[in-house]
Design a protein around this nucleic acid. Structure first.
Lengths: 140, 140
DNA sequence: CATCATAGAGGAGGAAGTCATATAGTGGAC
DNA sequence: GTCCACTATATGACTTCCTCCTCTATGATG
C-alpha cells in the first residue's frame, strides 16, 4: 500500500516559511535567493528549502507589515539584489513565533503520545474494551 | 505591540484534523458530533477542537479514500447518527501519520533551537559579528 | 414553539507549490 | 569581438490544500 498522494506523507504540512526567514534575517541582512540557499544548507529546516516564490511572497508580506525592510544593492559583480533586514517589530514577531512553535510542538507530542497509546495496533475486539458503540450514552 | 492578526499567534497553523480523527476512531466508532466533543475534552489537542464542518469534510474525504466506513445508527433517543469506523487502510495511514508527525516535531525543534541561538536578542552590532553585508562573497 | 443534537453545503481566506517571465551579468564557441 | 547559453535574481499568475465561518435542514425534547 502506498500513500504517495496522501497527506499522511506530510506533503501538505505547513513549512513555516515566515519564522524561518525571520530567524535567518535575525543574523544579518540577506536577499531572497541567498535565503533559499541558507535554508537548503540547513537540511534540518522543514523538509528542505521552500519554493523561491514562496520566500519572495513572504518577504513582500512581511515588508508590508513592517517586519522587514529592503534596499537594492548593486555589487561589483552579479545582478542587483534586494537585501532585507529584520526590524525591531520583526524581532518581536519572531519572539512570538518562538512561543507559538514551542506550544505547537508540545501539542504534536501529545497527539503522538495519544497515537502510541493505541499500540499494539491490532484491531480492537468488536464490543471489546473499546468505547461504547457509536459513542452514545446508551448502548444502541 | 499586539500581534492579533499575525500568523505568529499560530492562528493559521494546520490543526491536523485527519490524524486526530483517525486516532480517535482507532479506539472505536464515533459520529461527527461526538468526535468534536472528544477533541474538546482533550484540550491537549491542537488548539482545541476544530470546526465541525471541517470534521465532516475530513470524514467524507477519508471515506472516499477507504480510510473510514460509515453506517447510520438510530438510537432509542436522539436523531439518527452516522457512525464511522476506521478500516485497516485507515490504520495503516494512521501509522504513516505517526512517522510523519514525529519527523515534523523534530524539525520544529530544530527551528526552535536555531531561534534560541540568537539569544540574547539584542540587535547585532552593524558590521559586527554578523554575516557579510547582503550575503555576497565580496564585501559590497 | 423554542431549543438541542446532528448533519451538511458553500464560500472566504491563508499557506505554499508550479509554471512562466524578466533582466543582468558571465563565460565560452566561433 | 559577437552571439549564445547559462547563472543569479526577482516577480507574477494560477492552483491546491487546509481551515474557518455562515447558513440550512431535520428529528427530538420540553
Amino acid at each position: 500500500m502506498d500513500f504517495n498522494d496522501c497527506p499522511c506523507t506530510g506533503r501538505n504540512l505547513t513549512k513555516l516559511v515566515k519564522p524561518m526567514v525571520m530567524a535567518l534575517l535575525a543574523q544579518g541582512q540577506l536577499h531572497g535567493y541567498a535565503l533559499q540557499q541558507e535554508m537548503e544548507e540547513k537540511a534540518s529546516f522543514i523538509q528542505g528549502a521552500p519554493d523561491l516564490s514562496g520566500i519572495y511572497r513572504s518577504l513582500k508580506e512581511m515588508e508590508g507589515q513592517g517586519y522587514v525592510e529592503s534596499s537594492w544593492v548593486t555589487c561589483a559583480s552579479g545582478p542587483a539584489k534586494r537585501c532585507f533586514t529584520l526590524t525591531n517589530e520583526g524581532r518581536a514577531c519572531l519572539a512570538q513565533w518562538r512561543e507559538t512553535l514551542a506550544v505547537y510542538r508540545d501539542q504534536i507530542n501529545e497527539l503522538l503520545r495519544f497515537i502510541d497509546e493505541l499500540n499494539p495496533p491490532e484491531a480492537p475486539a468488536p464490543g471489546g474494551p473499546g468505547r461504547a458503540k457509536c459513542g452514545c450514552a446508551e448502548n444502541c
